[in-house]
């Protein structure tokens, strides 16, 4: 996966930097294999986005971020990109309103959920979540 595909709020680990005219600058800034990157926010038009690298905020265009190969941390997989399996909710990356909405469904940090055939099950019952909401829920695989 490349960095430009990672949803806002997620934390990822860098695997490799592909060749590009800004490769050396990216490496110098601290985007090196094994370093952690957090996607902090997007600009009003979605591109560029801000990333946190060693506590510094760095803005990258999506075309630039696409030269960076990353993978999710095991305990920080966004629900929108999780494959089938058993998970525990590790964090939410959103504001008050979202938290209210989500607690109405009974979901909390540490709740167990499972994914089967791409559908989400909570306490044995199927629940429906929009893609935007799924991007704000982070899971740890059990």
């Amino acid at each position: 996966m490349t960095l430009d595909k990672v949803p806002v709020g997620a934390k990822v680990k860098v695997i490799n930097i592909n060749n590009s005219p800004i490769k050396h600058r990216l490496l110098g800034i601290g985007i090196v294999p094994n370093s952690l990157i957090e996607v902090v926010r997007g600009s009003p038009l979605g591109d560029p986005r801000v990333y946190r690298v060693f506590n510094k905020l760095i803005s990258l265009r999506n075309s630039e971020a696409s030269s960076i190969e990353v993978e999710f941390l095991n305990d920080y997989i966004p629900l929108s990109l999780a494959s089938d399996g058993e998970y525990i909710i590790s964090a939410f990356s959103a504001g008050q309103q979202f938290l209210k909405k989500i607690s109405l469904l009974g979901l909390n940090v540490n709740s167990n959920i499972s994914i089967k055939n791409g559908e989400i099950y909570f306490k044995g019952k199927k629940i429906n979540l929009g893609h935007g909401m799924k991007e704000k829920i982070f899971l740890r695989r059990l």
Binding site: P21, I22, R25, L26, I29, P48, V50, K56, L57, I58, S59, L60, R61, S63, E64
Partner: peptide, 11 residues
């Protein structure tokens, strides 16, 4: 037609 990169720090 080279792009101008925007690797920019937000201080």
């Amino acid at each position: 037609g080279e792009d101008v990169p925007l690797v920019m720090e937000l201080p």
